[in-house]
Design a protein around this nucleic acid. Structure first.
Lengths: 251, 251
DNA sequence: CGTAGGATTGACCCGACTCAAGTTAAGTGG
DNA sequence: CCACTTAACTTGAGTCGGGTCAATCCTACG
């Protein structure tokens, strides 16, 4: 399991210098909100690639906002079959479900080194009491996650293999772009096993499907990761209309 | 499309006499919360079986809480393929996503006659400002929906046909029980087409799978609906551990 | 230079889809 | 009250997408 997750005292990014806030995608805070969130923030957690940030069945006293890096949420069946539910990117709030319902019902693993902003679960009620605007934002984030899951369910339930893969890659690419993850390198750090576990396919079939997308020059497959060459092409192939980008909240 | 959805002025169930509140499953309100919700409630909407309560792509000025009856949320692909995302039962809040994000990204259809409690989207902010406790509840409901979708995604992505059908029926049965939908008659008013569209199977294959469950005496298939005979057996077959029932909020 | 994780490919098989008929039960109109 | 229609459920035959098994290749890394 993961290394000890006690947040380190080091805070490299106090909220005033939050690396997310300047990004066009995210909404501005009022002075007051900023001050509150700064107090709400308890520290930072930095995890290695492959680390389990939150584990199914546990009760974490923390919530996190992703500041940097990639991760994914997944569930397991008893015999080890794994389903990746969604990817997490900077700006995403993780652990909310666990905070509200008691135990985590899914796990979260880092796909790359990640930097997380740590909040205390117990203080969420205070946030709701004192900052309706932020509370609204938390709900917005939950609703947005729900919406992504709806899309994903549609895809897994009803799209063909090629459509499904195309949809997923277009979707992840768009989301990552928005979060600034593709600013440095255009590579999405996935293995085909991750893809397979997201799409609901076997590894072998995933490989053959990816190959078709590569042959159509929609993506490139690299060392261990992929580069989307034409997300519009992928979206079209999948029959997906990506939502236009609107300013969104985060905590 | 649906008939005009303007809520009728008739209010058969003022909040003080809410048919849901007495049920063991739901949490109690304080006097103050009750008074607020009573003002928040704008009316009731009664729809026929088959009616579209909310349609993808539209902006509804309303939110609803289900008081009576069954419904389901679904999405369509351009060519008509349909994926049912989840079922809605009394106590569920519908239209929250649309309220927060602008447009509805899915549709909701009545599976039986339904009675809905109508709220105004615009007053949601007031609720957040004045009643942190209720705001928390709204978020709880959103997180719970997310959790159900996670389970569903796991099921569709990774379970075999028989497991998948077993999981779904056990799940729906448990939820319906909790909401009191099975108090009168034990019948879940689904067609096999609905099942197929939920499980991601063809109608034919769904039929064959249901048959196996019937042969094992786990369910009975009736006129147009099904009766779960042994939900524990279904859960076991699916490798699913149903969560114990805890008191939950509603609005 | 050896090893391990990831990607790739071919052979074979089975689960799920499609197509096509047929049955049953509940309307509905004459 | 019966003929006709319609929606839902069944069932069988044939096909194909996707799974499993088993090698092999590649490349980063120790």
């Amino acid at each position: 399991m993961a290394a000890a997750l006690a947040p380190r005292p080091v805070v490299r990014y106090p909220c005033e210098k939050c690396p997310l806030r300047p990004r066009a995608l995210f909404r501005d805070f009022t002075e007051e909100e900023l001050a509150f969130v700064a107090r709400f923030k308890k520290g930072e957690l930095s995890v290695e690639k492959g680390a389990t940030v939150l584990a199914e069945g546990t009760r974490s006293p923390h919530l996190f906002t992703v500041l940097m890096g990639w991760g994914f949420r997944y569930k397991l069946l008893a015999d080890g079959r794994r389903q990746i539910l969604n990817f997490v990117v900077p700006g995403d709030l993780i652990g909310l479900q666990g905070s509200l319902m008691g135990e985590m019902e899914h796990s979260v693993e880092a796909l790359s080194p990640m930097l997380l902003c740590v909040f205390e679960r117990d203080r969420l009620a205070t946030l709701y009491r004192e900052h309706a605007g932020l509370a609204f934002d938390v709900t917005w984030l939950a609703a947005r996650e729900e919406q992504m899951l709806d899309e994903n369910l549609l895809s897994i339930g009803r799209r063909t293999a090629l459509e499904r893969a195309a949809y997923l890659l277009a979707f992840v690419c768009r989301r990552a772009e928005g979060a600034g993850l593709l600013d440095g390198s255009p590579v999405i750090p996935l293995t085909q096993q991750h893809l397979a576990d997201t799409l609901g396919f076997s590894l072998v079939h995933t490989n053959k499907t990816v190959r078709k997308l590569v042959d159509r020059r929609l993506v490139r497959w690299l060392d261990r990761g992929c580069e989307v060459l034409d997300w519009r092409g992928l979206a079209e192939l999948a029959g997906w209309e990506p939502p236009e980008r609107r300013r969104r909240p985060f905590i």
